[in-house]
Simulated scan of single mutants.
Amino acid sequence: MAQEKNQLRMKDYEEIVAFLDQWGCFQKAVFFLLCASIIPNGFGAFNLVFLTDVPDHHCFVPDLNFSEEWRKSIIPKTVLNGKQELSRCSRYRLDVVQNLSDRGFIPGRDVNLTDLEEERCVDGWSYSTDVYLSTVVTEFDLVCSDQWAQPFTTSVFFIGVLVGSFFSGQLSDRYGRKPILFATMAAQTIFTFAQVFSTSWTMFVILLFFNGLGQISNFVAALVLGAEVLTGNVRILYSSMGTCLGFAVGYILLSVVAYFLRDWKSLLMALSLPCLAYIPLWWLLPESPRWLLSRGRVKEAEAVIRKAARWNKVQAPTVIFETYS
């Protein structure tokens, strides 16, 4: 019986606040500010495309006294997809090459390169900087025997997204839409910035996991808050197009920023620091009146509606939610 009564009250909500109109200054501010709050989700969902890209690479060759012919031939050539490329994970043994170079042998003429013994990249790798100055892959050498870590990094992020989706709704129902929205925005900003100072791949993916916790949680909190504050056709427009538009703007801006910033640390800083501009939104965005009413906080819900009335320059009734009192 209590549940049916509550549902009836929720249905009456739009009729009670109809005096506000659907598209006043208050609704416009909520609509566009919430859309703006979703922009970082577009950053976070796709930045790993750039952060974990694998540039061309081959074994690093120390500056030893080789002849020019041997320096050009020390990396074996392999055929990949019908195209001849330098081997990414092996080189000819340096001591053997050094001996052959000192004796004046010419590779390919005096020595059959396919007969030479190969070794792993024990001195590290040389990475191409044609596209990126650095990525997480080049920073922590996630190649060859550790190449599994590159796709696993993305998996860790989406595991965080999955875990966050399990409890964000419950937290939002208990503590309110607005606190959870800003808590998840803060989590994304803080952990994205903290990743810049990662000293190991393990540290990076741990921070990435917590970053993922706020990803879908932030999106859903903004979606629910807007859907409960706005009414009528504006509510439908926001829920169907507004939120998606904010997300799309995020990943469009990501591609622009990534084009100009080609090292992973600069990219993360550029994606996290501007989010500090969202702090003033705490004083501009309201709590959901519907949620306040569901918790029995009628006076606080009325305060939100009276503020909206002032913004829209309309007169609010003396008692707004009489049936909820």
Rank of each mutant, 00 (worst) to 15 (best):
F50P: 02
P286F: 09
Q150I: 02
A18Q: 15
N211A: 03
A221T: 08
L254R: 13
D123H: 10
L33Y: 08
G250I: 04
R93H: 10
N6T: 15
I190E: 00
N47Y: 12
L113P: 04
L162N: 05
Q98L: 13
L230C: 07
S145Q: 14
R103G: 01
M241V: 14
W283P: 04
L271G: 03
L64M: 14
S294M: 13
S200A: 03
Q147Y: 05
G82Y: 09
I206M: 05
P179D: 01
V314G: 00
L284C: 12
P107Q: 03
S272V: 02
D130E: 13
W125P: 00
F152I: 05
I206G: 02
S198R: 10
M203K: 00
V256P: 01
E15A: 13
V224C: 06
G104K: 11
A18F: 10
A29R: 13
R91V: 03
Y127I: 00
V79Q: 12
P274N: 05
W148S: 13
V234E: 06
Q3H: 13
L48R: 01
W125I: 02
F247H: 09
Q27I: 06
V163D: 03
T202Q: 08
L64Y: 10
V220E: 14
L268W: 09
S145D: 15
F26A: 12
